[in-house]
Amino acid sequence: MAANQKESYKTNQNLLQEFYHSCFGKIIILLLMMALLLFVALITRPTKQQMLDEMEDNIRECLQENDSIKADGVDDVVNNFCNIFTTAGELASDSDVVAAYKKFNRLEVYQHPFYSTAHIINNIHPSGVRVGIGVFGVVIPTVSYKDLILFVSPIKNYNKTHIITPPVITDDDLGENPNVQEYHYLGDPDQ
């Protein structure tokens, strides 16, 4: 009976199966899959010109979609998802809205090792706000209408010396200092 038990515990796995079933083997396989995924991301990263073309189209679509009333941020997400698969309609490239966009906003593309990002730079966002990500050959827009500047107006009372005047504090406002004396605990006076 002891010989039978020893036979049942024997495994007929080859070296590859033992490697696959070991913890070290699974870690190596996971690292190889991640390296392959990063390599594919590296070779399919959109170029700067592809990002510029796609984002200009997506921004024109964003300008075109904002004719109607928006309910919440979900509308922007749905529109941006749909903009991946469509192109801008008949909003002419010389229209007043597009001319205002080009006048007050600048689109810049940054190339990263495995992806690209597009940023809108304007007076509201001088360091830029991300409006698109390009990865695996696809440009995913994240543009929102509130990220764009389409008109500029003068600031009222710009030349005024103090726009916000600080309050004047007098001695009457602060009250009087209380008479604070040193206190020494003398124990319980009743005992």
Rank of each mutant, 00 (worst) to 15 (best):
Met1Val: 03
Ala2Leu: 09
Asn4Ala: 00
Gln5His: 07
Gln5Gly: 05
Lys6Gly: 06
Glu7Ser: 09
Lys10Tyr: 04
Asn12Cys: 08
Leu15Lys: 12
Gln17Trp: 09
Phe19Leu: 15
Ser22Cys: 00
Ser22Asp: 05
Cys23Trp: 14
Phe24Gly: 07
Gly25Phe: 03
Gly25Asn: 09
Leu30Trp: 08
Leu30Glu: 12
Leu30Arg: 08
Leu31Asn: 15
Ala35Gly: 05
Leu36Met: 13
Leu36Asn: 08
Phe39Glu: 12
Val40Trp: 14
Val40Thr: 12
Ala41Trp: 01
Thr44Asn: 02
Lys48Phe: 03
Gln49Cys: 05
Met51Trp: 01
Met51Lys: 01
Leu52Tyr: 10
Asp53Met: 05
Glu56Val: 00
Arg60Lys: 14
Cys62Pro: 12
Asp67Arg: 14
Ile69Val: 15
Lys70Gly: 13
Lys70Thr: 14
Ala71Cys: 14
Gly73Glu: 06
Val74Ser: 15
Val74Tyr: 15
Asp76Leu: 10
Val78Ser: 13
Val78Tyr: 13
Cys82Ile: 14
Ile84Leu: 13
Phe85Ile: 07
Thr86Met: 14
Thr87Val: 13
Thr87Glu: 15
Ala88Cys: 14
Gly89His: 04
Ala92Val: 11
Ser95Arg: 07
Val97Gly: 10
Val97Arg: 14
Ala99Gln: 14
Tyr101Phe: 15
Lys103Cys: 09
Lys103Tyr: 05
Lys103Phe: 03
Asn105Ile: 03
Arg106Cys: 02
Arg106Glu: 10
Glu108Ala: 03
Tyr110Arg: 10
Gln111Val: 04
Pro113Phe: 05
Ser116Val: 08
Ser116Asp: 02
Thr117Cys: 08
Ala118His: 02
Ile121Leu: 01
Ile124Ser: 06
His125Asp: 03
His125Gly: 02
His125Met: 07
Pro126Phe: 01
Pro126His: 06
Gly128Pro: 02
Val129Cys: 04
Arg130Gly: 00
Arg130Phe: 01
Val131Cys: 04
Val135Leu: 11
Val135Phe: 03
Phe136Cys: 04
Gly137Lys: 00
Gly137Cys: 04
Val139Ala: 00
Thr142Arg: 01
Tyr145Ala: 02
Tyr145Gly: 06
Lys146Thr: 10
Asp147Arg: 00
Val152Tyr: 03
Ser153Gln: 05
Pro154Gly: 04
Pro154Cys: 06
Asn157Pro: 00
Asn157Cys: 03
Tyr158Asn: 10
Tyr158Pro: 05
Thr161Phe: 03
Thr165Asn: 14
Thr165Gly: 02
Pro166Glu: 11
Asp171Gln: 12
Asp171Glu: 15
Leu174Pro: 04
Gly175Asp: 09
Gly175Glu: 13
Glu176Cys: 12
Pro178Leu: 09
Asn179Phe: 07
Tyr183Ser: 02
Tyr185Cys: 07
Gly187Pro: 08
Pro189Lys: 01
Asp190Leu: 08
Asp190Gln: 07
Gln191Cys: 08
